[in-house]
């Protein structure tokens, strides 16, 4: 017999993601899914952000890595709540992993939750974890053709942060090429050039966080 089905294969993931969204909305928590290649500076960005905005917001981080709790320890050193998920080889975080990590986080009074995904420009994009926005982080020590090579991430992200711009004099990265391609894939993407090392450009990122957080608080 033929059984017509037509069901989204990731429906189980999406269903939990919807529950997470409802929970985050109820608590008025802004949730951001941070996606990049390994080494682009996700943890450095978080260390900076958690330190610089410490007095303004209560923030927490869910860290996804194949192995080790190195990143959770770095993030916890800023005083923020941090939970490590080890995917043990898995290439992305999914909504059920985030749901179980929430049992270790105090949601009451939390303003912003960052989900630092496993370093990978492909798989994490497919799995909604209940976030308000995906943030793509790219660094100038990678190729300027990343938006062209991994278009789905840039198509789905609300913000692209270009990190390590203090190194631009030493690398062949063409900023215009990267920004143009990202803009072509996604006309609404906001692009900020930053250096988590020097602090350059981070103010614009912080203003974006303030704006999004206040929109979420009023939702």
């Amino acid at each position: 017999m033929e059984i017509p089905v037509v069901r989204n294969i990731l429906e189980a993931n999406d269903r939990i993601a919807e529950q997470l969204k409802a929970l985050f909305t109820q608590h008025k928590i802004l949730v951001l899914n941070l996606i990049s290649s390994p080494g682009a500076g996700k943890t450095s960005l978080l260390e900076r952000t958690l330190t610089d905005l410490k007095d303004e917001f209560t923030m927490a981080v869910i860290e996804g890595d194949c192995m080790t709790d190195n990143d959770a320890r770095r993030v916890a050193a800023t005083g923020a709540q941090a939970v490590q998920i080890n995917t043990e080889g898995g290439c992305h975080l999914d909504s059920s992993m985030v749901l179980s990590a929430l049992s270790s986080i105090t949601l009451d009074g939390l303003d912003i939750l960052f989900v630092e995904n496993v370093g990978n420009l492909v798989c994490p994009v497919e799995f909604d974890v209940g976030e308000d926005a995906k943030i793509a982080l790219l660094s100038v020590t990678e190729g300027d053709d990343k938006p062209e090579k991994y278009p789905l991430l840039f198509a789905e992200s609300q913000v692209m942060l270009l990190n390590k711009v203090d190194l631009l004099p030493y690398v062949d990265f063409d900023v215009d090429v990267a920004l143009r391609h990202a803009g072509r894939i996604n006309k609404d993407i906001e692009m900020f050039q930053v250096s988590c090392r020097s602090g350059e450009g981070l103010d614009i990122w912080y203003d974006w966080l303030r704006k999004e957080r206040s929109a979420k608080a009023q939702a």
């Binding site: 059984i3 017509p4 989204n8 990731l10």
Partner: peptide
Amino acid sequence: KELYLENIQA
């Protein structure tokens, strides 16, 4: 961007 199961023969 689709990803779905269309049908099953069983």
